[in-house]
Design a protein around this nucleic acid. Structure first.
Lengths: 339, 339
DNA sequence: TTGAAAGCGCTAACAG
DNA sequence: CTGTTAGCGCTTTCAA
């Protein structure tokens, strides 16, 4: 594969100017005679010139590329990522921001120990200038690895035990409270929750927000079953909940996928949603709309959060030396049919 | 961001050898005294050296990176991609192959005209060595753009009007036949299909395979409603089918997501699957298992196809000059509960 | 405003 | 087996 295209040299010869001048025109640097600019641009056109990224990066020390890392573990990791529209929203938000700033967004999965090493290597060698990290595993070693390698990064969700780096997050506690408030307001007397893994801070916060609001309203603790963010785990949790607490009339699921699983089980049992059991989800991903019935859910402004994450990183890359910034977004209740 | 780490020079000094020797050790080239190798490796360790990718690429003319491009259009493109586990399987297969060959897989979305230009630019400047392209749009301009830019590429699905490049595909016609055969075998008398967009060759082939087998068995043409690969479009199509043909007792949906939508509508109508209406999907993505009931479906060996695609590209990158290769995989019927 | 020249950090001949 | 040397293609001082 020796497709070596035309170089600056070739364009310069074609245009009858020096390499430096062509470089200036290509990079839009001022102080070039407009007439010459045209000549150069035509030469570029004729030769079909494209700058060689490696040569450029070698001197600029930038790749104009940002890696969006989705980190986790386990078999079928990719399958899980591509089954949750939540990630689609993150990608969407980050990509939109980066494209607007002429940065190339590249998505990489870090699904295993060796994959993480490869990804870190990719960044260390400078193939990307920094990383946006979305981790869906407790105690993910990736943020620390990146940090140790001096890679600029911003996290989606604050990591309590990880390194102190900038992050963007939603107020999970407030989200849980929103769900409880809504359930209470519609007269729910026997609330339950399908919570997220409790080794995740987000999982704990959503649960304690939910419980806290209930307690505040004078209710006893809700029935709790833990799920793993998937439809099936939500369904299984709902089955357990029903087995132990047949009186349940309201469920807060810690994400929409699990809420969907719950709805399916409820339906199988001929329990009407929301009439018999009200269901509230979390995220407001596209399944919230697809679900039958459409889900009332706690919306995370994911696209904005992702864009903010990219903006924070862009700032770091431009040399802003402020300490870690932690942005916390407010969740919002979106009422549809399920509750 | 001037984090300039140690260079070969630094390591060489530390180890008391020449840059060339360090380079050899780092790149695992033979002909280096084992003792020296150790010395060098220790020096690498001490200095925390990582090769600079730009400098290396500049001379090797390779980035050791392959782009996996998902191309299409429309608002919510990312959302759609991340709502179909089918893509997860592609990513999974390609990533697994590439990681094993020490290539960095990077996923990029080409969701608009400008995004496509950016992606092509990324490849033209050499940030990746080649592309694996998954297009979910009829007449996608991307393959041709890549081809014109002399970027090595392999397509997922053969493009009839696009440039002649290597591709990997499943026998869609055979897949449609498989679905028809199964429906017929279980005694279905009024088959219908929720077909894929007919401007897609794959969509046409799945439909004609289905119709062909029916015809061959002496049946009339099935009722047809077109969907757009999403759950909602499948549900809407099912509604139309039922409205026009209440007698329908078997449905072949051109992907699992649409099959799921169909199942939901059927359930709402109190029609039992498969007892009243049998449903066959396509893909065998993870929703086939999640769906209620679990879907009988036509399996595409997506992971293998993706790996084959990566292998074909790797061959091209190594300079194998064979003409375009078209690999066609056989689909397989996976029987679960829905039919 | 333009050109000449010096590298960026690395690999790959080519000697030794 | 090891070191010396010549670039890879580009940006960026520094002079003119």
């Amino acid at each position: 594969m020796n497709r070596r295209g035309p170089t600056l040299e070739d364009v310069a010869r074609e245009a009858g100017v020096s390499r430096a001048t062509v470089s200036r025109v290509v990079n839009g640097v001022r102080n070039v005679d407009p007439a010459l600019q045209d000549v150069v641009r035509q030469a570029v056109e004729r030769t079909g010139y494209t700058p060689n990224g490696a040569a450029r990066s070698l001197v600029t020390r930038r790749a104009e590329t940002v890696a969006l890392l989705i980190s986790g573990a386990g078999d079928g990791f990719a399958a899980r990522v591509f089954a949750d529209p939540f990630f689609g929203r993150i990608v969407s938000g980050a990509v939109a921001y980066l494209r607007g700033r002429a940065m190339h967004p590249v998505l990489m999965l870090a699904e295993s120990e060796s994959a993480r090493r490869q990804v870190v290597d990719y960044l260390r060698r400078g193939s990307a200038d920094g990383a946006l990290v979305v981790s869906i595993q407790a105690d993910d070693p990736l943020p620390r690895m990146l940090c140790d390698a001096r890679i600029p990064l911003v996290l989606f969700a604050r990591s309590p035990h990880g390194p102190e780096v900038s992050s963007v997050d939603v107020d999970h506690y407030a989200g849980g409270r929103l769900a409880a408030g809504h359930l209470l307001a519609r007269g729910c007397r026997h609330p339950a929750t399908i919570c997220a893994p409790q080794d995740l801070p987000a999982g704990r916060d959503r649960l304690s927000g939910f419980c806290g609001a209930l307690e505040h309203a004078g209710r006893i603790r809700p029935a709790v079953a833990e799920g793993g963010f998937t439809v099936e785990s939500g369904a299984a949790a709902m089955v357990r909940l029903l087995a132990g607490h047949p009186e349940v009339d309201g469920v807060f699921a810690a994400n929409d996928l699990m809420a969907q699983g719950a709805c399916e089980v409820l339906r199988d049992r001929r329990l009407r949603v929301p009439h018999d059991v009200a269901v509230v989800g979390f995220d407001d991903s596209s399944v919230a709309v697809t679900c039958r019935p459409p889900l009332t859910t706690v919306r995370q402004p994911v696209e904005e959060m992702a864009a903010a994450m990219a903006e924070l990183l862009a700032g770091q890359l431009q040399g802003a030396v402020a300490g870690p910034t932690h942005l916390v977004f407010e969740p919002e209740l979106v009422v549809r049919e399920s509750a």
